[in-house]
Design a protein around this nucleic acid. Structure first.
Length: 112
DNA sequence: TGCTTGACAGAAG
DNA sequence: CCTTCTGCCAAGC
């Protein structure tokens, strides 16, 4: 039962499920970041793992993974459709190809 | 078992 | 603004 946890971390399966739970709640027309997700699940230093999880997200879960971008508002490399999907929801982009994250970032604790 | 990779974040140049 | 580097840590090979 007792694993040699040098640091506090969750089982990878649970970690993945928590990530899915959050992504499923991102409203259309908004974006969220890997870092924010990592913090919400209690692992602020596992932002890279969030990306790994989303990359392997089963299609049958029907999750809006395209609403997740990095902290700079940068979209996923080698996935041109992502920008089109977001623009179709009304998300604005800058000339440099980044999401106007300051305007479209989802704020879970400021919902109304 | 050990080194490399990666849908990241943040800082630096 | 863009590129590069470092820190972080699980997954791959």
């Amino acid at each position: 039962m007792s694993k040699k946890n040098t640091t506090f971390h969750k089982d990878s399966l649970l970690f993945a499920q928590e990530v899915y739970e959050i992504v499923a709640q991102i409203p259309a027309g908004k974006v969220f970041t890997y870092g924010m997700i990592a913090r919400l699940v209690g692992c602020p230093q596992n932002s890279r793992l969030v990306g790994t999880v989303l990359k392997n997200t089963p299609q049958d879960l029907h999750l809006p993974t395209w609403r997740v971008v990095n902290s700079q508002g940068r979209t996923v490399p080698a996935w041109a459709e992502q920008q089109e999907l977001l623009e179709a929801e009304g998300v604005g982009f800058k000339n440099n190809g980044h999401v106007e994250i300051e305007k479209f970032l989802w704020k879970p604790f400021e919902e109304f």
